[in-house]
Simulated assay, not measured.
Amino acid sequence: MLLIMRYVFSLLLMMICYTTAQGQFSDSVHYYGKFSSLGSINRTQDGRSYLLNNNFRVGVSKKKIALNGSGGWVYGEQDSVKTNNDFAASMDFSLFRAVRQIYYWGLANYDKSYSLKINDRFQGGGGIAYNVLDRKGAYLSLSDGILFENSDLFLEDTIRDVYHTFRNSFRLGYKFVIHDIIIIDGTHFLQNSLSHGSDYNIRSTSNLSILLRKWLSITATMTYNKLNRTARENLLFSYGLTIEKYF
């Protein structure tokens, strides 16, 4: 499994280097960076809770190919009892997204989650996507593909479940900009195991941002995750600042 992860990440790294090197001879290369620091605090006479939600995303793109890396960490406590300690990192690429209505994508993802009882999980695969809308101020995309998943889960506190499966991964992604001030965007995944009908994952993230500057915004984020195999789910609402820059 470790060999597969090394191969996928090495392939993506070589593609980034190739894209950057070729930029000076063909179409220009564009770079992207985004960082958000969100959270929530609740304190009363009966108790207290807090949640920290930090995320970043970086990317490099040309006319025909785009590559991105992202990561996130969520930590939460309620009355001094840990509720969240969730980490995720991923790399993805898209081919012909900017020039065709139908394009190709690939993904490698690793995550750990205290709240969802994920000790280790790796997903890697690819598929095709369709741009329903792709214009300034309005973007809507549907995608589908096959992912290989290797997981180490906790069914109970002391019962480990180590297994692998292939999943169908369906995604809805969108972004809408209203009057160059309000941004609504989100990504929503449904991932069904191809071998076990009751084994599915749901991951949904929705964002509402109000621009203070071109590069700075106030953001509210709603995230929902469900892992049916462990019968665990979480719903996170957080707000804070987002820094976003194209260069």
Rank of each mutant, 00 (worst) to 15 (best):
V177Q: 12
F56Q: 02
I184S: 06
G23C: 13
I4F: 14
Y246P: 12
I243G: 06
F166R: 12
S80Q: 14
N131V: 00
R57W: 15
W105I: 00
S198H: 09
N168H: 09
D86M: 04
W73H: 01
G127I: 05
L212S: 11
K62H: 11
N192S: 14
K62L: 00
F170A: 07
R232A: 08
L227C: 00
I118Y: 03
K136E: 13
T221G: 07
M15F: 11
V8T: 13
N109A: 11
T205P: 02
V8I: 09
I16T: 15
A220V: 14
R167D: 04
T187K: 06
T83W: 10
K245V: 08
G127L: 04
G72K: 01
L227I: 04
I184D: 07
A231M: 02
R232S: 07
Y104M: 04
G33S: 05
K245Y: 15
R229D: 09
D86V: 08
I181Q: 03
K136I: 04
I202W: 07
G106N: 01
S28H: 15
D134R: 10
A108Q: 02
L52P: 00
L227K: 08
K64W: 14
F87E: 09
F176S: 12
N228A: 15
D199I: 11
L155K: 11
V58A: 13
L116I: 04
F93H: 02
I4R: 13
F166D: 13
L51N: 09
F148Q: 06
R203Y: 15
D86E: 05
L153N: 03
F56E: 05
W215H: 13
E244W: 03
A129L: 03
G106E: 00
W73V: 07
Y75Q: 02
G39P: 07
S169V: 05
M1D: 11
F166W: 12
S198M: 11
V81F: 10
G71N: 03
G145K: 04
Q22L: 13
L142N: 14
Q78N: 15
N234S: 15
Y163V: 01
F148V: 09
Y7R: 14
G76T: 07
F247T: 01
V74Y: 12
S26V: 15
L147F: 13
S70N: 09
Q22C: 08
I218K: 03
F247K: 02
F96N: 11
Y200V: 05
F35D: 02
E244V: 06
M1G: 12
D79A: 03
Q101I: 08
G23K: 14
E244T: 05
R167N: 01
L227E: 01
G186S: 02
H30Q: 09
